[in-house]
Simulated assay, not measured.
Amino acid sequence: MNNKEMQFAYKVKLALDANLDNLSDDTLQSLAAARRVALARKKQTPMTVRVEQPVLAGAFGSAGGMLSPKASWLGRLGVAAPLLAGIILFAGLYQHENAKRVSYLADIDAAVLSDELPLSAYLDHGFNAYLAEKEQ
């Protein structure tokens, strides 16, 4: 049965269950006869389907086998572990770069504060021109 047939059968079952008390005896007998015919047909057609699969697919996939619950857990861990490692790596990289930037700014602040020049000299555009000229 395909999906449409299953949905139709389910809807018919719900409708019959809802109106079970309102059905006449003739209708009940014809439904019982139809059920016997359907069961006879179902018994005649074998529903066994053999699926070929590699040996490892049952052990590590979700297809079943003795390790199915453990394999499912391992499969989820196989996805979550690299994701978690990536998040930790990016967080560590961010912390390292932030610490480097803070250290660099602290070195600049220490150099400016330990210098004999007043802070206003660094804000003067003429002084910057003088330093650039002196370096050449």
Rank of each mutant, 00 (worst) to 15 (best):
L20V: 09
I88W: 06
E52Q: 08
G65H: 03
V49A: 00
S114D: 08
E133Q: 14
A9V: 06
L14P: 00
Y122R: 01
E52N: 10
A99P: 02
F60Y: 13
A111C: 01
G58A: 03
F127P: 00
R35F: 05
A106F: 03
Y122Q: 03
A129T: 15
L105Y: 10
W73M: 12
S72H: 08
Q95G: 11
V55G: 06
P82E: 02
T48R: 09
K43C: 07
Y130V: 08
M6H: 05
E116F: 10
A63W: 00
K42R: 15
S30D: 12
G126T: 07
T48Y: 02
E52S: 14
Q53W: 06
L123W: 08
A91H: 04
L67E: 01
R101W: 08
V51C: 03
L14E: 05
T45K: 14
D17N: 06
K134T: 12
K42I: 13
L74V: 03
H96N: 07
L31S: 05
P46W: 03
A71R: 00
L20E: 04
Y10Q: 13
A59D: 13
S68A: 07
L74T: 00
Y94F: 14
D17W: 04
S62T: 07
N128F: 08
R41A: 11
R35C: 10
N2T: 06
A63K: 12
D107N: 15
M1I: 09
Y10R: 12
E135A: 14
D115P: 00
A40W: 09
A38W: 06
S120C: 02
A81Y: 04
V79Y: 01
N98Q: 14
A63C: 04
R41D: 15
E97A: 11
A34S: 07
L77A: 09
Y10P: 00
K13E: 04
A71C: 02
R101G: 02
Y10S: 13
M1Q: 05
L117N: 08
R50V: 14
G86L: 14
Q29D: 14
N98G: 02
E133L: 08
E5L: 14
G58Y: 02
T27N: 07
L14Q: 12
R50T: 05
D124F: 01
A40V: 05
Y94D: 06
R35V: 02
G65Y: 01
S24F: 00
K134N: 05
S72Y: 11
L74K: 02
A80F: 03
I108H: 04
N3H: 05
H125F: 08
K42M: 12
V55D: 14
L74M: 13
R41Q: 10
L28F: 03
P54R: 12
A85R: 09
H125G: 07
S120N: 11
V102R: 13
A18E: 09
F127I: 03
A99K: 12
A33C: 04
